[in-house]
C-alpha cells in the first residue's frame, strides 16, 4: 500500500473518534494484513509512537502482521458452534487443506496458511449466525449447518482442487 492510498483512508476519518482502529481495519481489509511500512507510515501520519501501533496490531485479533492466503477460511469457535461440533470441522479442514495437522487443539486461536498461499485457516468467536451452528466463513460468505462431509464441496467453490497427496 502506498502513501496516497493510506492518506485516502486516513482522510475518511476526520474526527479522532474511532480513527485509529478504523484506519487499521481498512488497511487490514484491503491489504489482507498490516504491512510493516504501512504501520511505520501511519505512526508518523497519526503522530503516534510506532510501539503503540504495533501494540494495537498485536492486541486485536482482527489484525494480522503477515499476509494471509488468497481465501480465508474462518471457523466459528463460539459456544453454539462448539456444542454443535466445530472441533470436528476444524479437524477436517486441517486435513483437507493440509495445514498444521493436529496443531490446533480444536478450540482456541489458530492461524494457518497453506504452502501455496491459496488458503488460510483461522478461528473466530461467533459470527452471530449461531442458529446455523456450526458455521464457517470463507472470505465474505457464511456457510451454516456445516458437517465435515460438506466441506470439500464448499471448498471447491473457492477453486480448491482437492488434496492429491492423501486420500480422505
Amino acid at each position: 500500500m502506498d502513501a496516497a492510498q493510506l492518506d485516502t483512508i486516513v482522510e475518511r476519518y476526520p474526527g479522532a473518534t474511532g480513527r485509529v482502529l478504523g484506519v487499521l481495519e481498512q488497511v487490514q481489509r484491503r491489504a489482507g494484513y498490516l504491512p510493516r511500512d504501512a504501520l511505520e507510515y501511519l505512526a508518523r501520519k497519526l503522530a503516534m509512537p510506532l510501539s503503540e501501533l504495533y501494540s494495537i496490531a498485536t492486541f486485536y485479533s482482527f489484525f494480522t502482521l503477515e499476509a494471509l492466503g488468497e481465501h480465508v477460511v474462518t471457523v466459528c469457535m463460539g459456544t453454539a458452534c462448539h456444542v454443535n461440533g466445530a472441533p470436528r470441522i476444524v479437524e477436517r479442514l486441517e486435513r483437507l487443506l493440509d495445514v498444521g495437522a493436529g496443531e490446533t487443539t480444536g478450540d482456541g486461536k489458530f492461524q494457518l496458511t497453506t504452502a501455496d498461499h491459496a488458503f488460510s485457516l483461522t478461528s473466530a468467536r461467533c459470527f452471530g449466525a449461531c442458529s446455523m451452528a456450526p458455521v464457517l466463513r470463507i472470505d465474505n460468505r457464511i456457510f451454516g449447518y456445516v458437517t465435515p462431509d460438506k466441506i470439500p464441496a464448499i471448498l471447491r467453490q473457492f477453486d480448491w482442487e482437492g488434496n492429491h497427496h492423501r486420500n480422505y
Binding site: 510501539s51 503503540e52 501494540s55
Partner: peptide, 24 residues
C-alpha cells in the same frame, strides 16, 4: 514511547516494535 505491550493475555510481552532495535 520506545517500548510497549505486545500481544494480550498471558502471551503479553514488553519489547520494541517488531523486536528490533528502537529508533526512539
Amino acid at each position: 514511547g520506545a517500548i510497549n505491550y505486545i500481544g494480550r493475555g498471558h502471551f503479553t510481552e514488553i519489547n520494541t516494535p517488531f523486536y528490533e532495535e528502537s529508533a526512539v
